[in-house]
Computed example of a mutant assay.
Amino acid sequence: MMSKSFLEAVKARRTYYGITNEAVTSKKEISELVEFAVKHTPSAFNSQSARAVVLLEEQHNKFWDLTLDILRGIVSGDQLQATEQRIAGFRGGYGTILFFEDSAVIEGLQQAMPTYAAKFPIWSGNSSGMLQYVIWTALEDAGYGASLQHYDPLVDEAVQKEWDVPANWKLQAQLVFGKPVAEPGEKEFQPIDARVKVYE
């Protein structure tokens, strides 16, 4: 039986857009949380293909400044104003975690087990999704509000250059977090009996 505290943490994890750049924990605690999650989140064949880059404070700001510069080159008019406001909200946070999958590991598995070659990229995505969820939930439990963003592949080249990320690390998602200052919106749920079937 799962612990009640775990289930409460799962339920409490939400998307927060109203965040500030105030730290809720120490930088060391954040890095330890990410390291723990990367180490213990499962992966297909224990491939351990997940990689993460933690950007705090000014490095976090730099990421969102770079992202906005890129978006200004492809978005215009009313859409640009809305985009600038959205990015300003993300930049207003404390940190961003960049999630990657190591393509060299995946390609090695494909070569070693060609029968499953087409499945390894899918399983890699599954593993990355689990890692994102573990860290998102853990940050929520630590007192942060967060939201998961996807500005890849637009920012991939800039990220690789700015933070010396290996070319075989493929960006999957960006988790922006900070101290929550506004509650998340109401969440509606579809009937659970239409989504889960139990046979005894």
Rank of each mutant, 00 (worst) to 15 (best):
L66S: 12
S103C: 05
Q59A: 14
K119G: 08
G108A: 05
F63H: 02
N126D: 12
I87N: 01
I122Y: 15
A104E: 14
P121R: 09
L80K: 15
V54S: 10
G125Y: 14
I87H: 01
S124W: 09
T83N: 10
G95R: 04
E101C: 02
I106D: 02
I74C: 11
A118Q: 13
L56I: 10
G129T: 15
R91H: 00
S128F: 05
G89S: 00
A138E: 11
W136K: 01
I106S: 01
L109S: 10
G77P: 10
G125R: 14
A104L: 14
H60V: 00
E107H: 00
I122Q: 07
P114L: 14
T67V: 14
L80R: 03
Q132S: 08
T83Q: 12
Q111V: 14
E58T: 15
K119P: 03
F63K: 09
G73Y: 06
I97W: 13
I106C: 06
V75E: 08
L56N: 01
T115V: 07
M113Q: 14
P121D: 02
W136A: 07
S127D: 15
L98N: 01
T67K: 00
T96V: 07
E57R: 11
E57V: 11
E101M: 14
V105Y: 00
L80Y: 07
G73W: 12
G89N: 01
D65Q: 05
V75D: 09
L66Y: 04
E101S: 12
A138Y: 06
L98R: 04
D69H: 06
D102A: 04
E101L: 09
K119N: 14
I74R: 11
I87R: 02
I74G: 01
L56P: 02
Y116I: 15
G92K: 11
Q132A: 09
F100S: 12
E107S: 10
S127F: 01
W64S: 13
W123F: 04
G93E: 00
I135Q: 04
S128A: 12
Q59L: 13
D69M: 01
E57L: 05
E101I: 09
L131P: 08
G95P: 09
G129E: 07
G77A: 13
F99W: 04
